[in-house]
Amino acid sequence: MAEAAKKLEGAALTRLLTLVKTHTGITMEERKRDMLTARIKPRLRLLGLESLEDYIDQLEQGKVEIQDFVNLVTTNETHFFRTQTVWDYFQNEYLPEWYKKNPDTILRIWSAASSTGEEAHSLGMVCEEFRFKHPSFKYKIMGSDIDTNVLAKARSGVFKDRTLDELKKRNPVFVEKYFREQADGTFRISPVISANLEFFQHNLHKAAPKGLLFDIVFLRNVLIYFNDQDQELVLSNMHRSLKPEGMLILGESESLARHKTQFIFKKPLIYMKG
């Protein structure tokens, strides 16, 4: 594979990076060559291909391999309750204020680029805690990703290893209350949570499907993978997908300061549709 990595330069590298951009919207730099090579290597063996050029040819010729390629090149990093200040705001400010204004309405939340679903399930747990205090409260959470592999994991509601270990340390009460340990040592989310969750495939370069409108969108730690022009496209799609005065939540390393958008700054990482 060292030979293949060495050949991934010039025209071949340009073709591959173009395919990444075309099918994911991600602008990937040439320095990601080794990472791309490492991720594609097992796929070459599985398909019986001799070189990366053969793989690129196959990608350019048809749609059969495209989804597997997308799954390979996208990065999926997520945690339960990532960035505590965001969750403090959602639980202590946003939910009480929204419910006061909309007591008879279903709260609709979008976890965009939801990966394996930790964020969406975190939202479910907080909403269930709020519903315990306010029985008439209703909510619907939708999670989306471009990667079909992580969507399958999110839909399963089964978690293990590092991300669940972190949750056990930070909030053992939630683990005891909303998860059930399985025979194989994994933990499955309570049906109370999963009943209010739905996951779907979605490319952030497109608006939410079926004309869906949301009260709040979590778009966290994903804009960093797009160039400035594509970031503004994604933000425009988010704006169209929000209800009037809907809220947008970004990741800890993201800001709208340098962008021309119709969002109004409320506090760090938190913006309102203008």
Rank of each mutant, 00 (worst) to 15 (best):
G143C: 10
T14F: 10
F179Y: 10
T75Q: 05
H202F: 03
T74D: 07
M272R: 09
F200H: 13
D54L: 13
V20L: 04
K168R: 11
P42V: 14
L59E: 04
S144L: 05
N149I: 10
T14Q: 14
T27K: 05
Q61L: 10
H23E: 03
N237G: 00
L167Q: 11
Q67V: 11
C127F: 09
K138Y: 15
G48V: 05
A12I: 13
E129P: 11
S194I: 10
F226L: 10
R43D: 12
I216E: 00
T74E: 03
L204Y: 07
N227T: 12
S190N: 14
V158L: 09
F218S: 12
V217W: 00
G251M: 00
L95T: 00
E3R: 14
D228P: 13
T78N: 03
D147R: 07
L242K: 01
F130E: 05
A12D: 14
E128P: 13
P103L: 04
E65V: 07
K169A: 14
D34P: 13
K206A: 04
K100T: 00
I193W: 08
I216M: 05
V217E: 00
V86P: 01
F265V: 11
L8P: 02
S114W: 03
A207Q: 06
G48W: 11
K63L: 06
P244C: 00
I40M: 08
L16R: 00
K133L: 04
H202L: 02
F218I: 06
F199I: 08
E60K: 04
T163P: 01
M28E: 11
L164S: 08
E128S: 15
M247V: 05
R220M: 06
D145E: 13
F69H: 02
R39F: 06
Q262G: 08
R258I: 15
N203K: 12
F137P: 06
G124Y: 05
E65R: 04
K63S: 11
L223K: 00
R43I: 15
G251H: 02
N171S: 12
Q91L: 08
